[in-house]
Design a protein around this nucleic acid. Structure first.
Length: 422
RNA sequence: GGAGGGUUCGCAUAGUGGUCUAGUGCGCAUCCCUGGAAAGGAUGUAUGUCUGAAAGGGCAUCGAGGGUUCAAAUCCCUCACCCUCCGCCA
C-alpha cells in the first residue's frame, strides 16, 4: 500500500507504474473517492463535536425542560449523522479496495517489459558443464538411485506428489542445515521455523491477497497455506513498533511451502521443479526507511544467495526482472536462475526483491526515528535455498555410471562425497 | 467438543450509563532542591486522522467489528486471542 498523500501528489507517476506493471486500477476514481472521504470526515467530525459539546450540557443540566429540549435536538442531529456515517463507511470501503490494488512504483533501473520474457541478464557465474555421455534428468538419476518416488507420491498425494527417500531425503536435510548454518554463523541472521498455516491478515499485508486467492490453499477455518516463509516472517512484527536500534532485523526462516500452481497445469509436469509442496529457507530483512538502505540490502541478499550457489558449484545467471514480471508491491526484483543440463536452460531458483514500505504499511510495522517521527520500516526478501537448486546440483554432478558427485559443502553433512548404486 | 474467567494509556491496577477531556502506582523525560546523588517536589508522558502556511484546533482509539442510547470502557450481539477446568486425542 502507498501513502494516499503520495498518491494524490504523484498521480501521473502512479498511473505510469500501473501501465508498466500491467495492472488495471483507476487512480482517478480513487482520488475522487478520497475527496469524498475527506469532506465526509470533516462534516461528520463537526457533528460529532457538536454532539460532544451538547452531551456535556445535558449531563449537567438541572432544568428538566432545558434537558428535554437539548435531547430532542440531539435526536435530530443523530439521524443526520447516521446517514452521513453510513455514506462514509461505504466510501471508505470502496476506497480501501482500490488502495489495496495500487501498485508500488518500479525502480528506474527496471527494464520495461511484458513479463518473464523481457527479463535482462545481469551476469553469469560458472561454466556450463560438457558431458561426454548421454545425460539424464534429475528424475531419472534420482529414481535410479532410489532417492525419490514419484509413483507412490502420486498415489498418496495426487498430482505433483513425491516422496524423498534415502540420500534424496538426506541431501535435502543437508541442504537446509548447511544453508541455515551459513546464515547464522557467517552472516548474523536469526534462524526461525515459521508457521505455514497463516491467517488472512499477513497475506494481505505482504501483498499476496486479496488478488491472488486462487493461488493459495485455504482451510475450512479461513486460514491459508503459504507459499513462502516470507508471509509468516513478515507477520511476526505486524502491528508493532520495533526499536530502531534493532534494525536491520535479519531472519533466516525455514518452512514448508504450498502452491496450488493454478495457472500452470501443463507446465513442468515432471520432476521436482514445480510441486505443490516443498521446503524453503528464506531471507527476510527489515531495515530503516531509506531507499539507499533498501538498495544496499537488496544487493546483499542477492550476494548471499549467489554465495550459496557458488558453494554448491551450480552454474547460474542473475536476471533483473522486467516491469511486467514484478509483483504488486515489488520495486525491483532479481531472479537467480540455475543451469539445468537436461533442459539446456537456466531456470529460476531464487527471487530477490525489495518493497520500500509497501508491505510494512499494510502490516503496520513501524519504528520511531531519531527525529521522534514514526516511520514504516523497509522490507526485503530473497530465497536462500529450495530443492530447485538441488535439481541443478544433481544434474550437474551426474557421472557416466549414474552416480552423483556431491558438492563439498553438502558432503560434509551427508557424510559422503558420492552417491552411487549399491 | 463442553463449562467458567479474562483482554483498560510502556508495565501494574481502578473504573458497571453522563464531572472519564480514563484515576492511581511504577517506569520514563525535563526541571526544582543538592557540593554531587538518593529521597522529596513540580511538570510532562500515546497513536492515527482531518483542518490549517504555522501556532493551534477538531475527531477517533479502553482486544476487533456491529448494535442500543441524546450520551457507552461500562449494556446487548458477533468474532479473535489468553487463562482455568472437563472431555477427546497425540
Amino acid at each position: 500500500m502507498l501513502d494516499i498523500k503520495f498518491i494524490r501528489e504523484n498521480k501521473d507517476l502512479i498511473k505510469e507504474a500501473t501501465k508498466k506493471k500491467l495492472i488495471k486500477v483507476d487512480i482517478d476514481e480513487l482520488i475522487g473517492l478520497d475527496e469524498k472521504r475527506k469532506s465526509l470526515i470533516v462534516s461528520v467530525d463537526k457533528k460529532r463535536n457538536e454532539q460532544n459539546e451538547v452531551t456535556k450540557r445535558i449531563s449537567v443540566a438541572k432544568d428538566q425542560n432545558e434537558r428535554n429540549f437539548l435531547i430532542a435536538d440531539m435526536q435530530k442531529l443523530k439521524i443526520e449523522m447516521q446517514k452521513e456515517e453510513d455514506e462514509m463507511r461505504e466510501v471508505i470501503k470502496a476506497w480501501q479496495i482500490i488502495m489495496l490494488q495500487v501498485p508500488n512504483i518500479p525502480d528506474m533501473s527496471v527494464p520495461d517489459g511484458k513479463g518473464e520474457e523481457d527479463n535482462k541478464e545481469v551476469r553469469k557465474w560458472g561454466d556450463i558443464p560438457e558431458f561426454d555421455f548421454d545425460i539424464k534428468s534429475h528424475v531419472e538419476i534420482m529414481k535410479n538411485l532410489d532417492m525419490v518416488d514419484f509413483e507412490r507420491g502420486a498415489k498418496v498425494a495426487g498430482f505433483r506428489g513425491y516422496f524423498m527417500k534415502n540420500e534424496g531425503a538426506l541431501l535435502n536435510l543437508a541442504l537446509w542445515q548447511y544453508t541455515i548454518d551459513k546464515f547464522v554463523t557467517k552472516k548474523g541472521f536469526t534462524p526461525m521455523i515459521v508457521p505455514s498455516m497463516v491467517s488472512r491478515e499477513p497475506f494481505v499485508g505482504t501483498g499476496y491477497l486479496p488478488q491472488g486467492e486462487e493461488d493459495l490453499y485455504k482451510t475450512q477455518d479461513g486460514d491459508f497455506l503459504s507459499g513462502t516463509a516470507e508471509v509468516a516472517t513478515m507477520g511476526y512484527y505486524m502491528n508493532e513498533v520495533v526499536d530502531k536500534k534493532s534494525l536491520p532485523i535479519k531472519f533466516i526462516s525455514f518452512s514448508p511451502c504450498f502452491r496450488r500452481e493454478a495457472g500452470s497445469h501443463g507446465k513442468d509436469t515432471k520432476g521436482l521443479f514445480r510441486v505443490h509442496e516443498f521446503y524453503k529457507v528464506e531471507q527476510v530483512v527489515l531495515c530503516e526507511a531509506s531507499h539507499e538502505e533498501s538498495v544496499k540490502w537488496h544487493e546483499e541478499l542477492l550476494k548471499n544467495s549467489e554465495e550459496i550457489m557458488q558453494d554448491l558449484d551450480v552454474p547460474y545467471r542473475v536476471v533483473i526482472c522486467s516491469s511486467g514480471d514484478l509483483g504488486l508491491g515489488q520495486v525491483k526484483k532479481y531472479d537467480i536462475e540455475a543451469w539445468m543440463p537436461s533442459e539446456k536452460k537456466y531456470r529460476e531458483t531464487h527471487s530477490c526483491s525489495y518493497f520500500h514500505d509497501f508491505q510494512t504499511r499494510r502490516l503496520n510495522i513501524r519504528y520511531k526515528d531519531d527525529d521522534g517521527k514514526m516511520k514504516y520500516a523497509h522490507s526485503l526478501n530473497n530465497t536462500a535455498i529450495t530443492s530447485r537448486a538441488l535439481i541443478s546440483a544433481i544434474e550437474n554432478g551426474q557421472q557416466k555410471d549414474g552416480s552423483i558427485i556431491i558438492p563439498d559443502v553438502l558432503a560434509k553433512y551427508l557424510g559422503k562425497k558420492l552417491i552411487k548404486k549399491l
